[in-house]
Design a protein around this nucleic acid. Structure first.
Lengths: 196, 196
DNA sequence: TTTTTAACTTTACATGGTGTCAAGTTGACA
DNA sequence: TGTCAACTTGACACCATGTAAAGTTAAAAA
């Protein structure tokens, strides 16, 4: 087993991700994660003070493993505003499936746990930033619709690209990932790009 | 106090609604509801077997109090398909604030509780029906976009009109209710109505 | 070689909410 | 006077998170 040599902390993060990824809706408990990482439940608390922290660390771990920064940089290099919007929708939209398990767990905790709410809020801000940049690129090209302000456009884009909407279309309605991306690109373009 | 004479069951439902309506994010417990209804926590269980049932009953109670059926009938009487879509978005969109508290509590339970999930699913089906009817009206007028099937159009409309999206724009982003309705009408029209 | 230290394990327990159980109270009605 | 329904009171099981304390183990430091 190669996993014997992986540092415990990484083994925990990997196990957390795998359980949340696979766990079809059934809640993943701290004890489940401990079992999967082959340590005692209490050892978990030696590495992470609480569940919210563990989940947050897992999202950062995923960002690292998948080198999300590089992907974002690529989408930022698009020539025109409209292309940049398209690229952003595609990049983020295709990253959602990766983080979905952890995101859902974190969103569920948000309701009751202050710290979880703050952690998720922090993640959302990063995504909002991506939305804002896309809107600004449109604006710079003179292609932003005059039906709304830049801020409203950012709000709307962030809302359309929410994890919940992805879940609704992809999981509940059983759309393919390609169809989801395609439709979101159409939808966001229709909503934000000035019609000639 | 006139509330002394109201039957206990109704007093419970009313209290549940008021607490969830007012309760700014802080979870409403069974004991809170009991206190508000001026009965013991155990008496709650004489009227409702569990929390999920109580929440579901509360949504039905709200539907009754606000005579949602009459409002829906009105939106169904719109002449053209596009008008009907507009009316549906307005009717449902303006009903969301009323049920938001209960809806949020039910959605939060959904994650862990089978029965809550089923109850909420049942409510969603009713809304989906409204979406489907609006799409069919568009289709009948030959105004439905040819970019997607009727089913996909229904999926999309249901997703756009989700309680989560309302929460995001209205609460998190602080949009006015009027702006929300206006934007949703634009957005759904752009997405679903065939462009000339 | 002995000691120390970090990374664990095991066991126990507090907390907070849901839901169950059983015995007692109260007031209206027969 | 008795009965019944609608309650109250108090106790408790369950389940997950998180805390606390004492013991083990293996490897590095002295």
């Amino acid at each position: 087993m190669s996993s014997q040599n992986i540092p415990t902390r990484d083994r925990i993060l990997k196990s957390t991700w795998q359980l949340l990824e696979a766990g079809n809706g059934n809640a993943v408990r701290m004890s489940d994660i401990a079992k999967a990482a082959k340590i005692s439940r209490q050892a978990l608390y030696l590495h992470f003070p609480n569940r919210a922290d563990l989940l947050t660390a897992t999202t950062r771990y995923l960002d690292e493993v998948h080198d999300i920064d590089a992907k974002l940089a690529k989408s930022r290099s698009a020539a025109s505003g409209t292309e940049r919007l398209e690229a952003w929708v595609e990049t983020w939209g295709n990253y959602i499936p990766t983080i979905f398990g952890v995101a859902k767990a974190l969103m569920a905790m948000q309701e009751t746990d202050e710290e979880a709410a703050a952690a998720w809020e922090d993640r959302i801000l990063a995504i909002r930033d991506g939305c804002e940049k896309a809107v600004q690129a449109l604006k710079a090209d003179g292609k932003l619709t005059d039906k709304m302000s830049e801020e409203e456009a950012t709000d709307l884009l962030l809302t359309l690209l929410s994890v919940r909407n992805w879940e609704q279309l992809r999981i509940t309605c059983n759309w393919t990932q390609d169809r989801y991306i395609d439709m979101m690109q159409q939808l966001t373009a229709q909503a934000l790009v000035k019609s000639e």
